[in-house]
């Protein structure tokens, strides 16, 4: 079962991580892999911490979920979520993260503090980290909602799929009227992940 590739997506409800996981799932099925995508619906989606899993393999994928130390890729849509989910990254895995900060309610109310220097701390552990300001890039592309596609762009540089394959897959998943914005977001994400 060691040949399964595990991609974990962590974000804040409303950021579009569900669409990202569906694009990645479609990408894998297009290449003939067996695929499982595990999603989160309902209450936790309302601005809460949300994780989705994408697993694919040439063999049959059994479990739909990813556990600690198993993720080949951890895609974080927000900085604090890196701290929350880093345990899930495999020792030689790649972290792709948005540097955006979204304050959770306990921080807004002053009950807790948002930790400083999360990404630096993670880098210091020797983790391969691709960090980018996906919100600015998405805004540059034309919509702050395209953060998910910017991050897929960054991921595309490191995954086993070609840039064109990922691009084609995005085309089949986003509505036609937002296609230009999303393709630009993808390009910006791809180019800033170096």
């Amino acid at each position: 079962m060691s040949k399964t590739t595990n991609i974990m997506i962590a974000g804040v409800g409303g950021q579009g991580s569900l669409l990202a996981s569906r694009v990645l799932g479609a990408l894998a099925i297009n290449k003939g892999f067996d695929v499982k995508v595990s999603e989160v619906h309902g209450m936790s989606q309302r601005g809460g911490s949300v994780v989705t899993y994408v697993r694919y393999s040439e063999q049959k994928v059994a479990s739909p979920v990813i556990c600690k130390g198993e993720a080949d890729f951890l895609l974080c849509f927000e900085q604090l979520e890196v701290a929350r989910w880093i345990e899930y990254l495999k020792k030689d895995g790649v972290l792709v993260t948005n540097t955006q900060k979204m304050l959770p309610m306990p921080v807004i109310t002053g009950a807790m503090e948002y930790p400083e220097g999360i990404i630096e701390d993670i880098k210091a552990k020797g983790v391969k980290v691709i960090d980018l300001d996906a919100l600015s890039l998405a805004t540059e592309a034309g919509s702050s909602k395209a953060v998910n596609i910017v991050l897929i762009g960054a991921f595309a540089r490191f995954c086993e799929f070609t840039k064109e394959e990922v691009e084609e897959c995005i085309k089949s998943y986003v509505p036609a009227k937002f296609l230009d914005i999303n393709l630009k977001a993808f390009e910006l994400g791809y180019n800033s992940a170096v």
């Binding site: 409303g14 556990c67 345990e87 020792k91 701390d121």
Partner: peptide, 20 residues
């Protein structure tokens, strides 16, 4: 059996769901 994994030592604030 447990997989080896990274840890983050800091205090991570919870992010409960909230009204939109």
């Amino acid at each position: 059996k447990e997989e080896e994994h990274y840890t983050y030592e800091g205090n991570v604030p919870v992010r409960p769901p909230v009204m939109c």
